Simulated assay, not measured.
Amino acid sequence: MSETANGDGLKPKYKRVLLKLSGEAFGQGSKSGISIDETLNIAQQVKRVVDRGVQLAIVVGGGNILRGAQFSAGGSLINEVTADYMGMLATILNGLALQEAMESLNYQTRLLSAIPMQSVSEPYIRRRAIRHLEKNRVVVLAAGTGNPGVTTDSAAALRAWELGCEVLLKATRVDGVYSDDPERNPHAVRYEKLTYAQVVRDNLRVMDIPAIDRCREAKMPILVFDYKREGSIERAIAGHPIGTWVCDS
Rank of each mutant, 00 (worst) to 15 (best):
M1C: 13
S2V: 15
A5Y: 06
D8G: 11
K13T: 01
K20Y: 01
G23P: 06
F26D: 03
G27Q: 07
G27I: 11
S30Y: 13
S30K: 15
G33M: 00
I36F: 08
T39C: 05
I42M: 07
Q45Y: 03
K47I: 09
V50W: 05
G53V: 06
I58R: 04
G68C: 01
A73C: 10
T82Q: 06
M86G: 06
L89S: 02
T91A: 08
T91Y: 04
N94C: 12
Q99T: 12
A101W: 06
A101M: 12
E103N: 14
E103Q: 15
S104V: 11
N106D: 14
Q108Y: 15
A114I: 13
A114D: 10
P123K: 06
R126M: 10
R131D: 13
E134V: 13
K135S: 14
N136Q: 15
V138S: 15
V139C: 15
V140P: 13
L141K: 07
N147P: 12
N147A: 10
P148L: 03
A157K: 00
L158S: 02
L163P: 09
V177G: 03
D180A: 13
N185Y: 02
H187T: 15
K193Y: 06
Y196W: 04
V199T: 04
R201T: 10
L204S: 00
A218N: 00
M220K: 04
P221H: 10
V224H: 10
D226L: 03
K228V: 11
R229V: 15
G231E: 02
S232E: 09
I233R: 05
H240D: 02
W245S: 09
W245M: 07
V246T: 14
